[in-house]
Design a protein around this nucleic acid. Structure first.
Lengths: 140, 140
DNA sequence: TTTTTATTGCAACATAGTTGCATTGAATCA
DNA sequence: TGATTCAATGCAACTATGTTGCAATAAAAA
């Protein structure tokens, strides 16, 4: 149930043949700490050191390419990143429209989509939008 | 199978109690002509008249709010819009990673997601990425 | 410890979208 | 038909999310 509990950023990076740099480590550490999908801004505020935006995005790109993290696109101005855990690569994401949190959702079998002849599927993204337990029950 | 064949932008707008303006009409006309989800740029090049970007985005916003169109977010820099047809509001989208086209996919039953107690679902987005028939069979 | 190669920071640029404010235009009223 | 009214438009400025080129720097290997 609990992923990467004993895994630190350095180990993660080295196991993927990636150099261990401050920015990459910071990004991974933030994600491992918070256990929710985080935006660039959220990661930035979580870190003590500051990095140039370019460095951040280059780190994201590297981590994405090597599948250490994945990206959840909620809106052009609302992007979140999360570490890849033991879950299958295909899983859904729940987005709470009130508290703005994104959580990975296990136990989903992606729908079998009846596409016309000749279509090839590479990947399927499933985003569920609504209210999380906390925001749904604590009605203001 | 063919939607909005005899529907023109003015009728669409009036039936939704919206003023018929040049920009709104243009956007809808482009979508009805092309029958694919279109980006702002694609709509812009399809139109003869030019509008300010602000006007475009305000028109999108209005059309979205009144559910005449819907938005498909593929990436922060890759956004498409499509007219709402007779399909149910919940349908999947197929994105071809080669030719960059987005098509609405019918006949999908959205997966029933086993969320923890207390969660409330408002909407589900399903995006399938891969190669369309044309790009898959016409291999270069 | 030196070398090599990848990472970093800076500047500049691109796309997608929003807000405030003055002006114009669409639809309604008389 | 013409005046009125409120919404839509255009402009300027700003935000978030990226990307690219280039020189300086740091990480890992020799």
């Amino acid at each position: 149930m609990i992923e990467h509990q004993n895994t630190n950023p350095q180990e993660l990076l080295h196991s993927h043949q990636l150099k261990s740099t401050a920015c990459r480590e910071g990004i991974l550490q933030a994600m491992l700490d918070v256990r929710e999908a985080l935006s660039e801004h959220e990661i930035r505020t979580h870190l003590s050191v500051d990095f140039d935006r370019t460095t951040f995005y280059r780190s994201f790109k590297t981590l994405l390419e090597h599948q250490l993290i994945h990206k959840i696109v909620l809106d052009p101005q609302k992007i979140k990143y999360a570490v890849h855990t033991h879950r299958g690569s295909e899983h859904a994401h729940f987005y709470c429209e009130q508290c703005d949190s994104v959580r990975c959702v296990d136990g989903i079998h992606m729908p079998v989509v009846p596409l016309p002849e000749g279509y090839l599927i590479h990947h399927t993204d499933l985003i569920i939008r609504g209210l999380c337990h906390n925001c749904n029950t604590n009605v203001s």
